[in-house]
Each structure stands twice: as C-alpha cells, then as structure tokens.
Amino acid sequence: MRRIPWSVLFALLLGMGMGLAYTWILYPHPNTDAQPSALRADFKDQYRSLIAASYAGTGNLPRAQARLSVVGDASPIDALNAQAQRMRAGPQTFEHADQVAALASALGAETSGGAFPTPSLEIAIAAGNTFTPTSPSSLTDLPILDSETPEFLETQAIVMETQPAAQESMPRATPTPTLAPGKPFTLMGQENLCDPNLPDGLLQVMVLNRSRRQLAGVEIVITWNAGKEQFFTGLKPELGNGYADYLMTPDTTYTVQLARGSDVALGITAPTCQSPDGATFLGSIKLTFQQP
C-alpha cells in the first residue's frame, strides 16, 4: 500500500493559501466594472441627483426608473424622498432638491395611478435587473421626449403640473411667488382646530396633487402686514410629505398661498379657543391645497 504523500499535499495547500492571500489581500483584482449599487452613499446621492436632473430635462420616466434600478435602493421612491430631505437641510440648492422630489412624486404617481403606457413600463421593468446602458433594449429603445407618443406627452403634462421641475426639454420656469394664471392649486379646505395638544397658533398646510397624493418640496409664502416668509412641505416627513407648518403670532392676520400659484387664503388669524377647564388658548388652522 502506497503512503499518502503528506508533504506534497501540504505544499499544494500552502500554495493555494499563498495564491488566495495574494489575490484577496495583496493584489485584489482591479475594480473597474463596478455597478452603481456599489458606490459610496454620497456618490449614490450624486447619481440619484443626476438621474433626477436628467429626468427634469427629458421627462423620460421609464428611463429614470431603469437608471434608478441599478442604484440598488430597496425603494427608489423612499430613497429619493429621503435624499430630497437631506438636500434641503444641506447646502444644495432647493432647485436640485426639488428635482429629486419631483422624480419621487412622478414615480409615486406612476405606481399609484399607472398613468404611463404599459409598453414603456415593461421596457423599464425588463431593463431593471439587467440594465446595461449599451444595450439597445435598455437605453436606445426607451422613448425620449422627441419620439414620445401623444398619449405619453399628455401624461407628461400631468407630471409637469404636479412638479414644475419635471418638464420637457426647455428652460424650467423658476417658481415665483406670483399667482400663476390658471391657479394650479385650489384652496380646498380651511378649518379652525381647537386642540390643546397642538402648539399655540399652529398653521398647518397640506398640499395634494389631483390624485390626493401629498407633494413634498412645495414652497408656501406667508405674508402679513410687517413681513413675509417662505416655508416648504416635506420637512416633517413623519407628518406627511405634503405637510408644512408655521407658528402664527397672536393678533396678526396672514395671507397664505403657494409660490407656484394657488388660491390665496386671506385673513388667516389664529383662533381663540377655550379648553374644558375654561382657560383660553390660541388654536390652530389647517389649510388644504389641492390641484383641481
């Protein structure tokens, strides 16, 4: 019976160990084919931001979906919303944060309403897992604005009304505090709230699109006889993406409207309420704006 060549086996294992140490520790295979999902978090933010900027330019939602699918977010809408919040809190301009929020809103509207034509969506989904920008099926076949069907363009018009940043290929209109013709948002509700649990004089504003979906990043302009301020929806996501609030001063009358154009809520004053024990306190007002 032949003896097992232990020394040869040991040399083989030693060699394998040396080879693995070389490739795993000393000289790993150069990383030149990474996917966006492997990017560091801040670079992923830049990648998403650019996807949103590109979407703002082309209005091509299926392509934006395909591009987002390779970033590796469990929920692209949540990731975009969270990034928009971070951008608003950081040094980035609101315009770019608005682009990110607009893409999130468009994706949300698309998933809730299915407004886009099915074939384009199928392309986006098909491209989702195996997205290769060189592949004709993933990029060159996806419709860009010039070749979109009238049906698709009509849908784009809805998205544009929802978020001005998501527009076709023309210079975007900068939101201005003037009342835009056509009043894209209507004041649907104004109610006084006497809830002692709420802060005194709290003005609550809720902004909804036509499908009653909350809109983040909408600028609200509040004016009174001595000044004017702006605040934005979506800064308290725990209360809703379309929620914003402002603390009113007693005995001051305010005017509230959306910067991108809306009905004007006139004569807004914190109501005086009475608690069950007879004490008085400043109540709250809730305004609801919605696209008609």
Binding site: V8, L9, A11, L12, L13, L14, G15, M16, G17, M18, G19, L20, A21, Y22, T23, W24, P28, H29
Partner: peptide, 14 residues
Amino acid sequence: ALLAGIGVGIAYGW
C-alpha cells in the same frame, strides 16, 4: 504542488 496550489489560489481569488 506548491506552484500548482499558487495557480489554483490565484485563479480562485481573481
């Protein structure tokens, strides 16, 4: 055997 092991290890690791 040592050289073969190194080759196998590199191929596996890369």
